[in-house]
Nucleic acid binder design. Structure first.
Lengths: 186, 186
DNA sequence: ATCGAGGTAAACAGGTCTGTTCACATATAT
DNA sequence: ATATATGTGAACAGACCTGTTTACCTCGAT
């Protein structure tokens, strides 16, 4: 059931999970920040985990829309767009308060691949892969599937390193590696 | 102060953190598993966070020793060793019960780069970088620093993707990308 | 033989956590 | 005007968390 309160709750939760992680963010904190009653939460969701999954889904949609939007506006050709992805990443890393990737955090905190939270995080990464595959195919590059998988590795690696070391420059290094890999598939 | 009890405690903690994460692993669980009294913990460490840092340090030493050992035994030439790193990763990912990287989990759960736990995790990643740089330099490859950074991206990306999707094959994809990037620096 | 270091066991304190209960408010659509 | 759905507020239960206190044990070195 859609509802403005529900949406606001999910948005607030997504922001706090992003900033502080999942186990470290209590329900009461989210409710206070959102200005919503506890029973409203438990009317819309069976548990905190369900709220987490919902938050990951909307945040996932937001991220992929942002990534496509940035890359598509930075470059016209699909081959160029594959590279533009890493320019978009750099913009993200440079933003004040960059604190890592909420989907990576979800996969880390909910380790087992069978866990619904982990699965929701993986689904978002798959959407990134799909966007890469789309462009690799349009660009008529060799073995687009393999290329997209390698670019996904660089995407994840850039996020991890940028966060671990507080080093936004990881995006540019990933872009250089991506250029070499794409060239190889040309 | 070294002590067998202390060592056993740290080892047990490292294993449980690795498996279940940090916030999700309570002190009592660790103590029960290790068969050690709570006061022994608090005699050796001021807090849980200090225990976490100690666990990351010993686990970090263990990981880097294992990685060097595997890569050095799989290949003689430094250039080959850079590639062998990814063969070692594949062995790791294929092990039953592979559940992601405890250092990545630490960086994720303790987001702020200034956090001591985060810093301990980053230090371990730097040791991996150092090993890569060492080999890139010995192999007289172009811009070894840059190359090592790109290989670190692939290392992190492979771990992240392998865990997110339960896909050990990420190691082989990373190896292929690494080959291209190394070739480019040849 | 005695002293001190390291370890043990168990209870305790004080928080925080998720999730529930229940009585009440509001607003919209019929 | 009244029924239905949605939200509120506050208290509560019960579990779990980190860290402390206290009394006791054991064993090796002096």
């Amino acid at each position: 059931m859609p509802s403005p309160k529900r949406d606001h709750l999910v948005d607030t939760a997504a922001a706090l999970f992003q900033r502080d992680g999942f186990h470290a963010t209590g329900i009461d904190t989210i409710l206070a920040e959102a200005g919503v009653a506890k029973m409203t939460l438990y009317n819309h969701f069976k548990s905190k985990d369900e709220l987490i999954v919902a938050a990951l889904e909307v945040e996932g949609a937001r991220y992929i829309a942002w990534l496509r939007g940035r890359a598509d506006s930075l470059a016209e050709e699909p081959g160029e767009r594959l590279l533009a992805i890493f320019d978009a990443l750099e913009e993200w890393f440079e933003r004040e308060g960059f604190n890592g990737c909420v989907f990576m955090k979800a996969a880390c905190e909910y380790g087992p691949v069978t866990n619904p939270v982990h699965a929701a995080a993986a689904a978002q990464k798959r959407a990134v892969f799909d966007y890469m595959l789309e462009n690799a195919t349009s660009a008529r590059l060799k073995d687009p599937r393999n290329l997209a998988q390698q670019l996904l590795l660089l995407h994840e690696g850039a996020i991890a390193v940028a966060h671990e070391f507080g080093a936004p420059i990881a995006a540019r290094q990933a872009k250089r590696a991506a250029a070499v890999v794409i060239e190889d598939a040309g």
